[in-house]
Nucleic acid binder design. Structure first.
Lengths: 135, 135
DNA sequence: CTTATAAATGTTATATTATTACATAGTGTT
DNA sequence: AACACTATGTAATAATATAACATTTATAAG
């Protein structure tokens, strides 16, 4: 059997798959060195291996980087196949991070014009507050 | 003469002033260690001195951190006296960063409700694209 | 003024996050 | 097989940020 060309195009390399699986299963954003420690048993031993996989996964839109936390979460928004327009809510107490998928919000931001009339299709928005549990 | 109480309340400590002046005069965002190298002649010799001043200046809303760049710029938006609701455009070629002050945008974001009906008064938005010069 | 308190500073060391550089191996195409 | 491209392995190091503790300066209360 094997993997068809089309599937292969969309499939992940070994290290990418290992690291994506870990992030995807995690209920919270993971930091690069947390990932490293957790995949050493699978043979990924050095930072560049982790950072390279993270870079590719971000490019593909499979994961997102939470910039204010230097941490990574899996994309759970089927519409953002590419890492270009992201929004998150972050709880300042428990650090829970949730990806926001709001058609209204993405539409508003994609159509926003700055004072030079410039539009931006790429953005990252991080909201801070308290989650339900922590309120 | 000297400084009145009211003025003093709003004034910066020595290190804060040195570091704020440097950032405020810079046409581009400055990184912590760039700041450190540039203020060593003024007696600020170690990272904690820089990071402490940066933290306070961010708290006060005098400067903002550009999270995706780990760099700091002076606030040029008289309405954001506190570092709680910020928006920037970032040129992906020349790395020019501009603070966006749009009443419409801040209103939209401050009133945005997530799917749980939650509102957020604190946020950071970074738009990416090409500036006028680089287009 | 002086004493208590809080804020800021100075200093050393270390923790955390990320990249450079180079060698090797696998994959897909012609 | 030859080539180009992507991914991997590895060591070293660069860049970003904080911990811990001693000291000094500023502020406010008595």
């Amino acid at each position: 059997m094997g993997i068809s060309k089309i599937d292969k195009m969309h499939s992940l390399s070994k290290n990418q798959q290992i690291i994506f699986d870990l992030i995807d299963k995690s209920p919270e954003p993971l930091k690069a060195y947390t990932i490293l420690f957790n995949v050493q048993k699978k043979g990924i031993k050095a930072p560049p291996q982790v950072y390279r996989a993270l870079d590719k996964l971000v490019e593909m839109g499979k994961i997102h980087k939470i910039e204010s936390r230097n941490a990574f979460i899996a994309c759970h928004n089927s519409s953002c196949q590419v890492a270009k327009a992201t929004a998150f809510s972050i709880c300042e107490i428990c650090e829970k991070v949730t990806e926001i998928s709001s058609a209204g919000l993405s539409k508003y931001l994609a159509n926003f014009k700055d004072k030079d009339g410039m539009k931006y299709s790429k953005y990252n928005l991080e909201f801070f507050g308290l989650c339900k549990k922590c309120r």
